[in-house]
Write a protein that binds this DNA or RNA. Structure first.
Lengths: 225, 225
DNA sequence: GGCCGTTGTCATGAGTTCGTAAGGGATTCA
DNA sequence: TGAATCCCTTACGAACTCATGACAACGGCC
């Protein structure tokens, strides 16, 4: 339910943590060192960071400090077992929680949930991707090849719904129901909005590739290969 | 600093913990079993509880549950080392933190401080930066390119919140909730304050770059590149 | 008390978005 | 081939949203 950035230089540790967090329905992005972590933090706006204290290059403490400058983000520290000094440092610089290595992945997942729960702003938004298209629900913005698209509210809702349900054809009635929240309505409403959306996301709006017409039925989102 | 209730059936453990917490300027009250703990919790209203999981009579889990019924009080669990089941249980029933026995009293004292800090002041930072903007929370002052900005109280709160959560769209209701602390209110209050803030931080307030409008939704802080 | 800055509310106007209608083109089927 | 159906495109007014300026209430300070 949230976007989590996992920072650890050990790929094995990352793999385990990532798989557990994904199983808990979180979107996960990874970094292997401090520099990469800071770049991802700036660019991806994760909801929470799981951060190893011992990192090559910029160490975890410095990463934590710099992330804190860029925004109010919860951080869970990973520290070596028994190294009390490390743990003390972690708490002093204001990590929201920490877990000692070796740790149980299940416990870490619980900590993540716990920290998210007491976070001031609920993190319940995920991002949807399809090829070079990206729908960021938290930012309420869609991007094509990294460039933000100037979508209106309805267009954004429509795109979000279609990308979330690729490969399936929806009738206009279904779209009115799912996107507009109407139980009845004029079909042309859908038609026109589809056209407007195509105008903004299709390479050649006259010959749509992603938002395809299904004759006699409605429309279908064709996922990128 | 705070009133802490220490619950453990071992008088030696209590004595060590208590002396350390007193050294850290906390007021400490003690209980040797679950029943006594619940009575003191009800009567003395401590700010935080350090609770042994293994107790004669009513066990720690039950004590924790009942205390939670009586209010949102931070609880730190004491558990046996390596007993992951206990730790997981502790987290699941909502302990804010735990410490494994044998533990360093100094670390416990730090944990107490840490939990108190995040329960009273939820994960706030001292300084926030975004491009040439700087928010100094301690001084309650914001700067642009080193020059202090003449912000009013509300404007400062609004700016701090937005910079702390960059790249995310907030509805007016959410902003009223997060910045004003209101659960309901007039949307125009937000609109007007956004306008006033833009007047002071945007290069061209008519065409805002950082504090952007998200049509039909609310506003979003655009982090500088 | 009087002055001043802050704050919340309101009215107004400008700008944006949305739904609908209508005409023309495309597709299907007899 | 022709008719019927479905879809695309365009245009336009209504409804909505936001920005702006003004104003009164409130509290601090002299």
């Amino acid at each position: 339910m949230a976007r989590v950035l996992v920072v650890d230089d050990d790929p094995t540790v990352r793999e385990v943590v990532v798989s557990y967090l994904r199983a808990a329905d979180h979107e996960v992005i990874e970094a292997g060192d401090g520099e990469e972590a800071l770049v991802l933090h700036r660019g991806e706006h994760p909801d929470l960071v799981v951060l190893d204290l011992m990192l090559p290059g910029i160490d975890g403490i410095e990463v934590c400090r710099r992330m804190r400058l860029g925004g109010d983000i919860p951080i869970i520290m990973l520290t070596a077992l028994g190294d009390e000094a490390d743990r003390v440092v972690g708490l002093e610089i204001g990590a929201d929680d920490y877990v000692t290595k070796p740790f149980s992945p299940r416990e870490l997942a619980l900590r993540v949930d716990s920290v998210l729960r007491r976070s001031t702003v609920p993190a319940t938004t995920q991002r949807l991707e399809d090829g070079d298209l990206l729908v960021d629900e938290a930012a309420h913005t869609a991007f094509r090849a990294g460039e933000p698209l100037a979508l209106t509210g309805r267009e954004f809702d429509l795109l979000r719904f279609l990308i979330a349900h690729p490969g399936r054809a929806f009738s206009r009635d279904e779209l009115l129901e799912q996107v507009w929240g109407w139980s009845f309505g004029d079909h042309s409403t859908v038609t026109v909005h589809v056209r407007r959306l195509r105008e903004k996301i299709e390479e050649d709006p006259t010959h749509p590739v992603r938002l395809q017409t299904v004759w006699g039925v409605g429309y279908r989102w064709e996922a990128s290969p």
